[in-house]
Design a binder for these strands. Sequence first.
DNA 1: CTGAAAGCGCTTACAG
DNA 2: CTGAAAGCGCTTACAG
Lengths: 342, 342
Amino acid sequence: MADVARLAGVSVSTVSYALSGTRPISLSTRERIEQAMLDLGYTPNAFARGLKSKRSRIIALLFPARAGSLRLNALECIVGASDHAQQRGYHLMLWTGVEAGDDLTQLAGQGLVDGALVMGVRLHDPRIQVLVDAGVPFAMIGHDADPGEIDFTDTDFEQSARLAVGHLVEQGHQRLGFLGDGENPRPEKALRRAASMAGADLVAVDAGASVDAGRGAFTRLLQADPNLTAIIAFNEHAVPGVMRAAGDLGRRIPQDLSIMCIDMPPHVAELTTPPMTTVEPSAAHVGRAAVDMLLRRLNGDTAPPRQLLFGGELNLRGSCAPAPSADDLHHGSTARQRRHQE
Amino acid sequence: MADVARLAGVSVSTVSYALSGTRPISLSTRERIEQAMLDLGYTPNAFARGLKSKRSRIIALLFPARAGSLRLNALECIVGASDHAQQRGYHLMLWTGVEAGDDLTQLAGQGLVDGALVMGVRLHDPRIQVLVDAGVPFAMIGHDADPGEIDFTDTDFEQSARLAVGHLVEQGHQRLGFLGDGENPRPEKALRRAASMAGADLVAVDAGASVDAGRGAFTRLLQADPNLTAIIAFNEHAVPGVMRAAGDLGRRIPQDLSIMCIDMPPHVAELTTPPMTTVEPSAAHVGRAAVDMLLRRLNGDTAPPRQLLFGGELNLRGSCAPAPSADDLHHGSTARQRRHQE
DNA sequence: CTGAAAGCGCTTACAG
DNA sequence: CTGAAAGCGCTTACAG
């Protein structure tokens, strides 16, 4: 910057003001400065700027990677958030595997980031308190049990559940199963509510993030209700197990059993046979909205906490069909046996 | 730091040296300083440190997100790199959608990052030259046409191709098809080589990242060789189209047609029916190795450029089977028609 | 409209 | 083994 000032024949402070635009500069001066910056290929030093102004224009993305159980939508959410931040002149810094404890306290204390985005928020998430204590502004993607004072964006599970259940009930399904991931209890709660409002029965089980877990879950679902005709899943890693277990028992999807996923990205939904019907919010949207919330806070917005829920869209693909008729059900086991003997 | 020094009764320089360990400090002094830091909950300011030392301990991850065509393995690679960097005391900063041009030049000039990792490297990637010119140390994940002077890690496509072709030829397949993504030409080249070494025929087509593109690609593959019995794909987004187009023509997978993917993560491979046989390197490994390479350079290593290729593993699932016998082939069309009329 | 100067919180020669 | 001081490259009151 000193070089620029010299070349333009002005003081460094004038260069700085020209750069920030925080005070009027005469046209000719401004032009000389701009020319000098171009000639020298000057870019302001981020550290000097950060040190003095106490603003880094960096935000942290807290991303608890329990390897293996990564939701495939996470990448889209991250990229959405990052693109958006970048457009607004901010950088996104990845903090993976940072849990509450010294790590986070240290990181937050370094003054490196102006704020944080917290992904994968659990119901009782100790990271939240650490951030509050550290005085780091943040917004959550997902939300904890009591988000009271904190901005967040999340999937609107109530709306998603109504969409999912609505579609299935319309198709004549009355006995539904739910497959959760054992971590986020919101989908199940929402589904229970939606089912009871729609007058449908719902049984629910959780499963880990594996094919085998899905197989086991299917068995448990059938034990809970041998006559269920549709399954709603919030556990993309267990779904293949469910589908195969159903196939093994001769239940064809979608003729004998409908299945639908919440929060599975489109290109993944296309991989199953039949392709998976989904209710799915735009993960990129959720990420972008969280960035917006946070930036508003960083710019001094003191409005009460905002909580933005994003509804999903129903994407009909091929894994749901009208419920088998009572007649089908009656003869079901015979038909299934026949198929199995082929 | 001034507070710490006061509380410990020493000078700030002593505190700084105690922190960095770059010169001997008496035990009692060190203890007083450490106690003071604890009492005050002190964490060094990252900007002051960066400004003075010219090292930020931040590395950029250049991640060109052409939305929609994100490889699902990318997330694992990113998380692998980030975890690893974090363990080594570095931060990973996401630069999505940053292409060659002013953006990159600016970012590189800010002095914010000590180095960069470049993902999604194309054969002639203008970002490379920009980084070289800016004097930012970097390593590539993937590599361009002429990586001469630059460190990189990548999938070992030659080895992967040998594995894939080897398995198929062992199973009696002699007429193979390849489905590329139209961006990375290496898989096709490697496959051609592997096929010719194994004495198998290979026809190749490219497709965009969509189901429809996959359908079209299957048609073109059959035009190129109506008798192919196996397909190797490096295009996870088009694979569903291939599978469905095959199904529409009555070709059962794997009995009539084997299919195999390169670079598809395990939990995605489980989603198809039958589950997809893959040849797949550990994306997390590739990411970690790139971090290691870069950090070595940052620490002054001047060894000649290193180029690390990671071989894939063959994961047999269910999408490949022995080639149909000549007899099967002969009666194939009749059999297919029969199935279609059912 | 512009300049001279203090200071952000560290690191690191220089001196003892 | 320890301290006093310069300086990294900016921003921003203060002064004109």
